[in-house]
Design a protein around this nucleic acid. Structure first.
Lengths: 154, 154
DNA sequence: GCCATGTAGTTGCGCGCGCAACTAGATGGC
DNA sequence: GCCATCTAGTTGCGCGCGCAACTACATGGC
């Protein structure tokens, strides 16, 4: 028997559901495309590469283990290996063996990397504000924060 | 002169801004990864391929021009060419010349494609509800919809 | 001490996509 | 009618990433 008053969990999305879901896809695609283009054009970096510099900049001594970088950047270890390869070519990062663990390697921010980070960070923050935060009153920013917390907490 | 009461647009993000922005990145990455894995495992399709079937299913006569598909799916025309190639191999889609425009081509949903769409749609809707909508009361879904509208309208 | 198992990082391979160049056909100025 | 320009679609190439296999080292049971 059909039970139209008890919609199936695989039935069509209603307009509220659609707006919440599709809107996120649209906004994410658009904003990240713009930020990626800005970062590439202004600094020759991808956003992922920038984020790695950012994580290193926040870390004590400007260095982190490869696996920690990978998990923070939401990449696999193999992806991080290649990403750091490119940052090493740019002289923004150096590798260092981990003393006390012969398997481990650190990625270390160089002075040139720290300089690049400082400049790129301004581009990135301005882009996030211009393309995203500026269009949202603080009340809506707070509402988004709450929603994300609900989605992410298991 | 520093003007701490007038924060620079490239200064650090405050906690509210950070939660709104980073949360979206996290939620988007996580939910799309899960939906992609479900779609691949259950039906051997990527979400992009599924969406093309969906657009065709909604179109009159189950057919659309390549360029229209590309813009709806947020892909380039070249990406759509290859994506449709794969759907043709799967026998879910056929190509047809556009009469009256010798350049044009339609992608047409086959009966097998319509069947695949029906089944895959259930997987996808269930995934969206399970991983995203279920964790948001309707008030928050409405708040998200409003926020997306603000970000997207120029 | 020795071996089974686990972990860190790298490498070979393939996929999905964008960019730029290209072909074929449409369109407008004259 | 003719040619410059535009548009639709495809193709060659490269990039960024994940998966699985591999190497090297660490760790715990005995």
């Amino acid at each position: 028997m059909a039970r139209p008053d008890q919609p199936a969990d695989d039935g069509p999305l209603d307009p509220t559901e659609l707006a919440a879901w599709r809107g996120m896809l649209r906004v994410h695609a658009r904003v990240t495309a713009i930020l990626d283009a800005q970062m590439r054009e202004a600094h020759g970096l991808t956003v992922s590469q920038y984020e790695v510099l950012l994580f290193l900049g926040d870390a004590p001594d400007g260095q982190m283990r490869m696996a920690d970088l990978a998990s923070r950047a939401l990449l696999t270890r193999s992806g991080m290996t290649r990403l750091v390869d490119r940052l090493v070519e740019l002289r923004y990062v150096e590798r260092a063996a981990a003393e006390g663990d012969g398997r481990g390697a650190f990625a270390c921010l160089t002075p040139a990397g720290a300089d690049a980070l400082r400049v790129a960070q301004r581009t990135h923050r301005r882009g996030i504000r211009e393309e995203f935060l500026r269009k949202l009153p603080q009340s809506e920013q707070l509402a988004l924060g709450n929603a994300w917390e609900h989605v992410l907490r298991d």
